[in-house]
Amino acid sequence: MAMSGVDLPPVRPQTSLQRPGFLRRLMADYGQELIVLLAIVVLFVAVTAVNPRFISANNLTSIFSGNAYIAVAAIGMAMVIITGNIDVSIGALIGVLATISGTLAVAGYPIWVAWFFPVLVGMAINGLIGILVAYFRIPSIVVTLGALSILRGGLISVTGGTWISDLPPAFLIAQQKWLGLPVPLVAMIVLTVLAALWMRYSAFGRSLYAVGGNPEAAVATGIPIERRIVAVFILNGFFAGLATILFATQLQVIQSTVPPNLELTIIMAAVIGGVSILGGSGTVIGSTLAAILFATIGSALIFVNVSAYWLRAVIGLLILATVLADMLRRRRTV
């Protein structure tokens, strides 16, 4: 977690003097993403060989759209981590926003209000977190640990855990299709591509890498670090809000509690996807791929009949293997 230290992974070379081939350059720029992608492909091939139903359209739909909300939330998380911060309150936030969304929908507000008002709430809460982190210099893990307690405790004391049912059918957008594709899948792809392009090509996006990777240099080049950090938390709230829309509309009932361990899954997706936890590198494509990898692992282990008791150990081992593979790759590229 140190802001300084030699453990900083090497900055990816953007250009090289030796005019490397396309593959080499791709490997250098998107190495971790490619490893994750490779892992997904290998899993698909191996499991399909055991049970061809694994690549049936239905199963692909379940894998991709059932977990799209994790990928969408991980986009915001990736941006936060790129600036050298972290948000452990995101799971609780999504629980709170889903409850607000469902309550509004049942209370008869227009559907779009029920969808997008929680997004604003998420942005406001995260804006506050960002201000505490940026201007009051409280480490983000402290602020978000506190926010986690406040949101989780607050949700239970307000709702008492009553479930929300009788949701209007039009509200359930995650169950609908768009051009024959499930809405969550489309949302995941569109948001990931837009965010990736924006991170790579906009001045704002590029400045985030500087904020995380080399704050002194960022200050020297005139980047307003504090404003960037607040902005990135607001963005995180925005993506958490969008993730909530997918999360809350997936079933006909909303469980108004904090989803267990959701923050760990989202952080892990952002991290495994190649966003170094030290900040300053990584892409949002990687985090989305990692979210897909988790979903694939979860489904695959059921398909290949891994003893349910050993399921989590195998998941842990696969994650560790991915991390170590990345570290070995980084060493080789230096």
Binding site: R53, F54, S56, N59, G298, S299, F303
Partner: peptide, 12 residues
């Protein structure tokens, strides 16, 4: 929900 889906898909 996801686990049930996987069961449905796996066993057809």
């Amino acid at each position: 929900f996801n686990q049930s889906n996987t069961l449905i898909n796996k066993y057809g």
